[in-house]
Computed example of a mutant assay.
Amino acid sequence: MKCIILAAGYATRLYPLTKNTAKPLLKVAGKTIMNHIMEKVEEVDVIDEIFIVTNDKFYASFQNWANDFQSKKTVHVINDQTTTNDNRLGAIADIQYVLDQAEITDDLMVLAGDNLFEFQLKDFEHFYRKVNADCITTHELDDEAEIKSTGVIEIDGENKVTSFEEKPQNPKSNLAVPPIYIYQEKTIPLIKQYINEGNNPDAPGNFIPWLIQHKSVHAFKFEGMRYDIGTLESYQKVQNLF
């Protein structure tokens, strides 16, 4: 299994903090958000290579970070060649960029570089093996404002996803979906098909409602907190909690 960590955004909502520092390289409780995420990835034995996709502005920063990070796995930093928020590729297009550059054909774990979470990725990978299908993660979220700013799903009794909406005005459930996914190797070509059909290449969750029309997707329901760091307020909240 390969792992792609999405870190090519410009985090303009966090200015001035992120004007010269990539959001995943901001520190929470004395270590970078990326370090928090990587410690969980390190525990997934089946992952042998990690690809951090970033932009030209922060490429050198991530290279420096990777040089200092002691990993049991091979870590690559990929430059998607974009330079501003206006010419960014979007998360799904960034995934495809890495797939093309690295010629990935294995199973794939995809993570956002700005989400902190308490559950173990190795438990998610075990669930993936058990259901033998593409998998997303989900947790119960009862804050009305927060649930409207994330992906929301409905599932059946087998944890199969039956509907998915990105940032719905009228959520059909309280099951929120963070950008933490595992795709089967046979699903990899479908990402390019999704893009070629003219679908939205931006938020990674946009791929899921399209995918459930083509394949079964299961949801791993986790306990514990998940923090999406998108604004100065949310960053401060996470700093206080940690």
Rank of each mutant, 00 (worst) to 15 (best):
M109F: 10
V110P: 09
V110W: 01
L111W: 00
G113M: 09
N115T: 15
L116K: 02
L121V: 01
K122A: 11
D123Y: 02
E125H: 13
H126A: 15
F127T: 06
F127L: 02
F127M: 09
R129Q: 15
K130A: 14
A133Q: 10
A133W: 02
D134P: 03
T137R: 00
T137L: 00
T138A: 11
E140W: 08
D142Y: 13
E144S: 15
A145M: 11
I147K: 01
I147D: 02
I147L: 13
K148E: 06
T150G: 05
T150L: 14
G151P: 05
G151H: 10
G151S: 14
V152P: 04
V152M: 06
I153H: 05
I153R: 07
I155K: 02
I155G: 10
I155Q: 09
G157R: 08
E158L: 11
N159G: 04
K160N: 14
T162C: 03
S163R: 04
F164V: 02
F164N: 08
F164L: 00
F164T: 01
E165P: 05
E165I: 12
E166K: 11
P168K: 00
P168G: 04
Q169F: 09
P171Q: 05
P171Y: 06
S173L: 05
A176M: 07
V177Q: 04
P178R: 08
Y181H: 10
Y181V: 00
Y181E: 06
I182Q: 12
I182A: 04
Y183K: 06
E185M: 11
T187R: 09
I188P: 00
P189Y: 11
I191H: 08
Y194W: 00
N196G: 07
G198M: 03
N199A: 05
P201M: 04
A203K: 09
P204T: 14
P204I: 13
F207S: 09
F207T: 10
W210I: 01
W210K: 09
I212Q: 12
I212W: 02
H214K: 15
H214M: 11
V217N: 08
H218D: 13
H218T: 14
A219F: 06
A219S: 15
K221T: 13
K221A: 11
F222H: 15
E223L: 12
